[in-house]
Write a protein that binds this DNA or RNA. Structure first.
Lengths: 130, 130
DNA sequence: CTGTATCCTCAGAGATACTG
DNA sequence: CAGTATCTCTGAGGATACAG
């Protein structure tokens, strides 16, 4: 096609509000943009929906105590995770995915699965200064 | 201890390398973590796979010239986008998704579609200090 | 073991102005 | 219109030390 300009019709659905800063997809990406957010959600998920801080940190090499707590706090205020204190012999803390949090596991696992299945593509990526 | 720890078997596949810093899913998340990366890829996609700089900027409100060029450069080095100079009357520039870039449209659109379909969930999110 | 409080660094991102 | 070059600044992220 000699015409570099793409058919404007393709943009029809986006014309009114092309890519508003607060559109739904952007929020999702924003939510997943934190360095540890997805890791923690994923870790909680494969741990059966809940885990204790110690276990979390052990499962996520490189995760500092500070970032863990901070991310968990953010996830709490977002309503994706809840802090549960278990009154056993030595009282123990546990973080658990909320119902809302469970919903966001879906797109997250989609991404993770895609990434795993297409690891070859991801390795083809030119190394950007990281 | 009473061991609230979930069945370790669930973690079987992740035990050896729990969440290495350079695992495939992480790279995908990392790639999508840039503020404008997904926007630009998506914009290119819905524009038919290629677009001129001016059009891109017009379609992505808030995108500065600098960030556009910079992001496009990153995408070029990553091999997802190619710069094409069209030798027409007034020579014009065009950015086009490469074959590799096309592959990454898939997970991207998955996310975007999910976000659009679940806009309600995204609005339920507690407003974190943005 | 869980959680908090400081301090520091550096990269992402924007604004501006200048050059083919 | 496309692209580059500075300058600045916020803030995410990390290290460390401290407290329940």
């Amino acid at each position: 096609m000699t015409d570099p300009t793409p058919s404007p019709d393709l943009l029809a659905g986006y014309r009114q509000a092309p890519f508003a800063e607060d559109c739904a997809p952007r929020r999702l990406l924003k939510l997943f943009s934190g360095k540890w957010v997805t890791m923690i959600l994923h870790a909680l998920h494969i741990s059966g929906g809940s885990a204790r801080p110690g276990a979390l940190q052990r499962n996520l090499p490189g995760l500092s105590k500070k970032m863990m707590t901070q991310t968990l706090r953010d996830l709490q205020t977002a309503g994706l995770v809840e802090r549960v204190v278990i009154q056993t012999m030595p009282p123990n803390v546990e973080y658990r995915l909320t119902a809302l949090g469970q919903r966001f596991i879906e797109p997250l696992e989609m991404l993770y699965c895609w990434g795993v299945r297409h690891a070859d593509l991801l390795q083809q990526l030119g190394q950007q200064p990281d």
